[in-house]
Design a protein around this nucleic acid. Structure first.
Lengths: 327, 327
DNA sequence: TTGAAAGCGCTAACAG
DNA sequence: CTGTTAGCGCTTTCAA
């Protein structure tokens, strides 16, 4: 008991005892069992983190920022990925709950009803639940803390930005990943905005598979279909920078005149597009910042016992930044 | 007790009881507490994973493969990063041991003596310890399972490849990260090989900071220093593709004639270099495969109780693949 | 086939 | 300031 006390608040132990203990710790190489600790105290040191794909640069950045922030609070990340499947997500949440995590972080606001119930129950029990990389549009209720942005709005911004550059026809190349809802929302926002601007708009869908390649193929198919029609200044938005990079390379191969007759606008500011010949314009999102903000929220939430579980979850909004390159 | 039994081997419970239990599970939304389970059984479901930086694409890929593989075995990843600091690594290992992990995965074979002792003790107690992304050279003893490759050898391969392409002067741009030992080993291997081929060789060091930018600056400085000397066909190897990308862009700006007078060879096959104008040649490593192999090793090791703890740890070698682009 | 008893390693609460 | 007691939620073992 005294050792336990020494480890969490050394000042509450007598000088001599402290010295003894410290020596014993050295000699035995003791390290406290965190699982036993959590079990006894009811406070877990683990934060459950669920992302669609660890290897995607935006989520990797987010994990980096999140991990760094949590470390400061003495928390650890248990990470798993869903492969953009809500069914997988439910499974993950279910087993993650077995760790009695101090907090749960997941990507996006779309979940299966069963998942939603599990999460609400967890939150009821006092476990903070955070949805990152997304945000419910104004007027839509959200049960959990959100750190992200409104994808439909970002899609609209993309359309508007292209329109302002003078492109008269707009196209959005959507993700081939069926359950990448955030991409689809950007598409909807893009198309709605185009319509409200009175511009002709088209919704392309990349096929599933390696996205750079699919982006190229989808672009080529679209380009071929345009055929000999007189070229109209066309602005194309993309679900992400991988698709956009593939399209950019293909467009160069097809000798499209950019930016005069054709303007491409990606999303995410992935490293892959950053140094492309000609420059890929994109919407930059600070993924690491999302992770940091999430860690800060969790740390604060866990320390401030004053915060009631019934407090309204809020939204932390990260503004995407438009990067024009090669223009 | 019967519920516990039902959950791990339903067939050892009577039909009726099983039905009852299942209903109760549904109604209550019960999920077993993994921490309590580990504590009681002495078997943890957590695997501790320590990488230099979660956001680096090669490690992100590795985590992706590792996570997918471990999931099949019902294991979870607790992930932390060291920022390429051995001191941090020691800290991480120490706290990770508190999870009584089923296995420990860390990056590289270089550790502080204290870390090494902790790991050996853990292995002694039956916890598999795996070093990824590295391999002790032949003749050097290694205490732990290794999944990776000999970096000095890869450095030598890079030098040889450039030499075979006809470059008469060789340069290696090393990482500015002090404790990126694997990069430094590649440098050493590169330079040693160059010497043994009788070629002039130079060792550059990028500064710390954003690697693409530093790569460009370091290249520019080197180029300026070359001055008006008559151009010799020069092959340059890089610690990684980020530095190489920066150098490639700079070389294009400086109108170096590539590949005729200058050949660049990166390392890692990061996405960022994959679609560069002109094409960045590189050594491709399958990071995801390293993660998969690691997961397979751990799963197998945990299931085969037959394997004695005194078994010699082996080495799983992944061959890098040379990718010439833009030649 | 089921359940009772004991204990994993720790911490909360209280007594000295 | 230190130590005792009880118990976190589960599994192991053994008895019924």
């Amino acid at each position: 008991m005294t050792v336990s006390r020494f480890l969490r608040s050394p000042e509450r132990v007598a000088r001599d005892t402290a010295t003894h203990i410290q020596q014993a710790l050295q000699v035995t190489g003791y390290s406290p069992n965190l699982q036993a600790g959590s079990l006894a105290s009811g406070r877990s040191q683990a934060v459950a983190v669920i992302v669609p794909n660890i290897a995607h640069s935006i989520f990797a950045d987010t994990l980096h920022g999140l991990g760094a922030g949590l470390q400061l609070a003495g928390l650890h990340m248990i990470v798993s990925s869903t492969g953009y499947s809500l069914a997988q997500e439910e499974q993950q949440v279910r087993t993650m709950l077995g760790w009695a995590p101090a907090a749960i972080v997941l990507t996006g606001r779309m979940h299966l009803p069963a998942t939603q119930l599990l999460l609400m129950a967890a939150q009821q029990r006092g476990t903070p639940v955070v949805e990152i990389w997304d945000q419910s549009p104004q007027g839509e209720a959200h049960a959990f803390q959100q750190i992200g942005f409104d994808h439909a709005r970002v899609g609209a911004l993309m359309a508007q930005a292209l329109a302002e550059r003078g492109y008269l026809q707009l196209v959005f190349m959507d993700s081939g990943v069926e359950e990448d809802f955030r991409a689809h929302e950007r598409a909807q926002g893009f198309l709605a905005k185009a319509a409200s601007l009175g511009l002709e708009a088209k919704h392309l869908h990349a096929a599933m598979g390696e996205p750079v390649e699919q982006g190229g193929q989808c672009f080529a198919a679209w380009h071929a279909q345009q055929g000999s029609a007189q070229p109209i200044r066309c602005g194309m938005g993309f679900a992400n920078d991988l698709l956009a990079t593939g399209a950019l390379l293909q467009a160069q191969r097809l000798r499209c005149r950019m930016p005069k007759e054709m303007g491409l606008l990606g999303f995410g500011d992935f490293p892959v597009g950053r140094y492309c010949q000609g420059g890929l314009s994109t919407m930059h999102i600070d993924g690491e910042r999302i992770g940091q903000a999430c860690a800060e929220y969790i740390s604060q939430r866990l320390s401030s016992h004053g915060l009631s579980v019934t407090d309204q979850p809020s939204q932390i909004v990260l503004q995407p930044r438009l990067l024009w390159r090669g223009f």
